[in-house]
């Protein structure tokens, strides 16, 4: 049984200009001990799909799903209090901007102890001891001293470690990390990714890593889901995805990477991601797709079988991307 199982998740936002579909029929599964990367350009619905699954979206959002289970429990009809028991303890989330999730008015030690008090039955002394342990686990030097620091007194990398310490405080079974290193320098990013994957491995935790960085995906994920304009367009084990992308969007994205360039001119994807008011009929990628025909422009593409990367495409690619580019 998968740890997290989502079938046909859609999210509509009520906006001034009418209803806007931010996530459209997305499936997500994560097994215990698995690292799933969700990759896609900004606005493709990566954050919204995870927030929806956790029930963390504002009232303007309408969430529907055929199935939404965590560890066998149906999340759709949990009472708010039952949901809070699960979220924060068994599922934890960390966000891109540690400063916006930490409270500037309290010391980081206080905030970690609060996270512990909410979900675990520990006395004061035990909470204090556990907070110190957690600070050590996430590699914060001189943790006794740092427990008394306020977030603004710590660097971005240190604050992200504090966020991770809070997230793993209750030993979650699943950790969702939304762009956890995007605001950090590469040498610090490397430290944080090592920390996350190390914790994931040691605890056998499931990890969902949301990112737009193909390098981060290649180095940390076991499996990759690619999102485009609210659709999941492909889902494959990491090596297969980079070697044999089946969706034309994935292939084009990989070809546009400067590090894969074979010539000075990079392959490009013409046009831009569709917005609220110019969503095309048929395949959402069809205005930019090199393989699009009339069928693509009029009919919704099916989801292909796993051997074809679950590509949401009428004409999935079979050939390796490298041959494609030549």
């Amino acid at each position: 049984m998968a740890l997290l199982n989502i079938r046909n998740l859609s999210v509509d936002f009520a906006t001034g200009g009418g209803s806007f579909r931010a996530v459209d029929g997305v499936d997500v599964t994560v097994e215990a001990g698995e690292v799933l990367a969700i990759v896609g350009e900004s606005g493709s619905g990566k954050s919204v799909s995870m927030l929806a699954a956790m029930g963390l979206l504002p009232w303007t959002a309408t969430v529907t799903a055929d199935e939404l289970t965590f560890d066998g429990k149906d999340l759709r009809n949990l009472s708010p209090s039952a949901r809070r028991k699960v979220i924060g303890r068994d599922v934890a989330m960390i966000f891109q901007e540690p400063m916006s999730s930490l409270n500037p008015c309290f010391t980081v030690g206080f905030q970690i102890r609060e996270a512990l008090a909410q979900h675990l039955n520990l006395d004061r002394a035990a909470r204090k001891k556990r907070a110190l342990e957690l600070m050590e686990m996430v590699g914060i030097p001189a943790p006794e001293k740092r427990l008394n620091a306020f977030p603004h007194q710590l660097s971005g990398g240190m604050n992200q470690r504090v966020m991770i310490a809070m997230a793993i405080a209750c030993g979650p079974k699943l950790l969702i990390a939304d762009e956890p290193t995007t605001a950090l320098d590469v040498t610090i990013q490397a430290q944080i990714l090592d920390l996350l994957t190390g914790l994931q491995r040691d605890a056998g935790m499931g990890l969902i890593l949301i990112t737009h960085d193909m390098g981060v995906v290649a180095e940390t994920a076991h499996r990759v889901a690619v999102q485009y304009a609210g659709w999941k367009v492909e889902d494959q084990p990491v090596k297969d995805l980079f070697q044999t992308p089946h969706h034309p969007y994935t292939a084009a994205l990989l070809a546009a990477l400067p590090e894969r360039a074979t010539e000075r001119r990079l392959p490009t994807i013409p046009g831009v991601v569709p917005g609220q008011f110019d969503r095309p009929q048929g395949c959402l990628f069809s205005p930019r797709c090199a393989f699009a025909d009339d069928r693509c422009r009029s009919t919704l593409p099916p989801v292909q079988p796993p051997e074809l990367g679950r590509a949401r495409c009428h004409y999935p690619l079979m050939a390796p991307a490298t041959e494609e580019a030549q």
């Binding site: 990714l193 960085d213 390098g215 290649a218 980079f242 990477l257």
Partner: peptide, 9 residues
């Protein structure tokens, strides 16, 4: 430290 978009590396 710079991640490379090559999972086989």
């Amino acid at each position: 430290a710079t991640p490379s978009a090559d999972p086989t590396r």
